[in-house]
Design a protein around this nucleic acid. Structure first.
Length: 594
RNA sequence: GCCCUUGUAGCUCAGUGGAUAGAGCGACCGCCUCCUAAGCGGUAGGUCACAGGUUCGAUUCCUGUCUUGGGCGCCA
């Protein structure tokens, strides 16, 4: 295909550049061409004359007229006229517009794919603590992250999808001790279950598994366990605790963990590991079912095991960015724009989560990633300056790190807000949600809201209106094309012949508009990838489906006129292809029938 | 208090330094003897929170006020 016939936009820019050289030699300007919303403004519009008005000290309309006068002739341009305050509106020849259909058919699954871009990019997302089932908040991060990664890959980047497994911290200890307490309870060694331990039934399931596999091997008397831990507050289960009581609860839980480690010795690791691998496996299976795949599951613990955390702290110290106060080691992050300094090593000698995160990000650079996208919950936004600060302190390219914040999902059942607490186990899991509304509707629903805006997810609505979810509107367009093609094939039609269709037969306004829409797909991919905005693709696909449905209702595809039929089917197949390419990025299926 | 975020149609939300600001839902009126009506066409509905500023041009950028939500631990 000739680039002149399919890349109309670049062609027009060339024409304008040439005219500019005649009208104002030596003047430099960015040539912008946009697709006007209003069809009466032509197919493309340029504001070049307005941009030049200031430099040339002349009326924009006058400049526009001279530019139009100097435009080289082109078969692709039907009309170039001055409008409004000084726009130059181009109307493109029909043939130049519909040529895109052949290009779509030729490129198939690759239509819209961007040119290979240099560098290695990592997208890290979900990274939920493996302490229980994923919930609807994680579902949003997963839908956004997976779509963003696919979008970036389709736009031409080399992308690695990574899940950071927080297998080293206190939360994991709490999960392990929760499991152990349930296990002890099943042997009659009853210890009041702390309200700040993990409450979910899956903890009992794991306890049962341990029991089945190893019997009473890990049993210790309840009295011995409690003897090691500071007492819990007097009222174990009654609503709002005061600050002091909360502190008391945490101290009690830490005491139980210490007791477990002490009494179990090496066997503590078995409980810990069992809980970890169970939850991680569950999480992985959940995400795979959801269509969310990771290339790398990176262990936080490995950063400790390889000495990377100690090395990172030592390096910061060597560079003079640490100081000691109150027995702890502090990173002077205020030197790098943070609002206060941060502890990297506590008074008790343990590293903070921040310390391992510094090591983790250092490691990302060591692995050769030239751009790193972290997708975090919005509550971590205050965390960005300190991580970037640490990177700067280590002389790493802090600007190579982009953090995309995913805002909270508030769950509603009707007008009633569903309270969510991970530890209390009172939350709706991603699995339940997927089962209720389906994977496709679920993933698409999440993408209908920009990720940095909070989202109200009404379960009743999602369920009752699942058939009204816009995803079906798009899938329906796809299925409709498939259905027509099936009938045509039954009548002896052959899809392979469509690439030779005479596209000149596509003369109606709707057909021209559809072709123009298809031509804009690569630009949309490019801009959505640049902006990190998969939702833009979701909205665009809905628009494309709308254009298709309108056309489908206005014109019959399987007409008697063989030439026209071929051309229309070719256009329909091109639409189907673009819908397919778009939905694949969003992780949504493109069904042949509905 | 400081930092971030939000305000656009009755509701839920897109969008843009440019021309007459859009969609879905809801409301109302129409369209299947015809390729899938999970669809289409039409009507009604707006001071783009408010006030200044920058600009040829501001709903978009800047400042202030009001407003929505979040964050400010030797938690992770």
């Amino acid at each position: 295909m000739s680039s002149q016939s399919t890349d109309i936009k670049a062609h027009l820019a060339e024409l304008l550049r040439s005219a500019l050289a005649s009208v104002a030699p030596g003047t430099d300007a960015d040539i912008h061409l946009e697709r006007p919303r209003d069809a009466t403004h032509g197919d493309f519009a340029s504001n070049l004359a307005m941009q030049l008005a200031r430099a040339l000290k002349e009326n924009p309309r006058k400049i526009a007229e001279r530019l139009v006068h100097e435009l080289p002739r082109s078969a692709a341009v039907l009309k170039a006229e001055v409008a409004g305050a000084g726009f130059i509106n181009f109307t493109v020849a029909a043939g130049a517009k519909t040529a895109i259909v052949a290009a779509v058919l030729a490129q198939g699954d690759d239509y819209g794919r961007g040119e290979r871009k240099p560098g290695k990019l990592q997208v890290e997302f979900v990274s939920a603590n493996p302490t229980g089932p994923l919930h609807v908040g994680h579902g949003r991060g997963a839908a956004f992250g997976a779509s963003l990664a696919s979008l970036l890959a389709f736009a031409g980047h080399e992308v690695c999808r990574e899940y950071y497994v927080n297998d080293a911290g206190r939360q994991m200890d709490i999960l392990a001790v929760s499991t152990w307490l349930r296990y002890l309870d099943s042997y009659g060694e009853h210890i009041p279950f702390p309200p700040n331990a993990y409450q979910g039934d899956y903890v009992r399931d794991m306890a049962q598994q341990v029991r089945e596999a190893h019997g009473d091997r890990y049993v210790h008397p309840a009295a011995a366990v409690l003897a090691c831990a500071p007492a819990a507050p007097a009222r174990p289960d009654e609503g709002d605790y005061s600050k002091e009581e909360k502190d008391q609860l945490e101290a009690h839980l830490d005491g139980l963990i210490a007791a477990a480690k002490d009494l179990l010795g090496e066997e503590w690791h078995y409980i810990h590991q069992h809980a970890l691998s169970e939850q991680l496996a569950d999480c992985r299976e959940d995400l795979e079912e959801y269509g969310v795949h990771f290339d790398c599951w990176f262990s936080e613990r490995s950063l400790y095991d390889t000495g990377m955390v100690a090395k990172a702290v030592a390096e910061l110290e060597k560079r003079g960015h640490l100081y000691e106060q109150d027995g702890a080691k502090w990173f002077r992050s205020t030197h790098f724009g943070d609002e206060k300094d941060r502890v990297v090593q506590r008074e008790n000698g343990l590293y903070t989560y921040f310390a391992s995160d510094i090591a983790y990000h250092w490691n990302k650079f060591e692995r050769g990633f030239t751009r790193i996208v972290d997708i975090w919950g919005a509550d971590h936004h205050g965390y960005i300056p300190r991580v970037k600060g640490a990177l700067k302190a280590l002389d790493l390219e802090a600007d190579a790190l982009d953090v995309a914040l995913v805002q909270f999902v508030s769950l509603f059942r009707g007008t009633e807000k569903v309270s969510m607490s991970t530890r209390a186990g009172s939350y709706v899991t991603l699995r339940e949600l997927r089962r209720e509304v389906g994977n496709d509707a679920c993933r698409f629903f999440y993408l209908l809201r920009k990720q940095d805006q909070s989202l109200d997810f009404d379960l009743d609505l999602a369920k009752s209106q699942s058939n009204d979810n816009p995803v079906y509107y798009i899938q329906y367009a796809h299925a409709r094309v498939c259905s027509v093609l099936a009938q045509w094939r039954n009548a002896g039609g052959d899809e392979r012949g469509l690439k030779d269709a005479d596209l000149g037969a596509l003369v109606s306004e709707r057909e021209q508009a559809l072709a123009a829409k298809l031509a804009a797909f690569p630009e949309l991919i490019e801009s959505a990838a640049r902006d990190g905005a998969p939702h833009a693709l979701a909205f665009w696909l809905r628009d494309l489906a709308a254009d298709f449905h309108a056309w489908y209702n206005a014109e019959r595809l399987l007409v008697d006129d063989a030439v026209l039929k071929q051309a229309r089917l070719a256009l329909a197949v091109a639409v189907r292809q673009v819908i397919r390419n778009g939905l694949r990025i969003l992780g949504v299926s493109a069904p042949e029938s509905m």
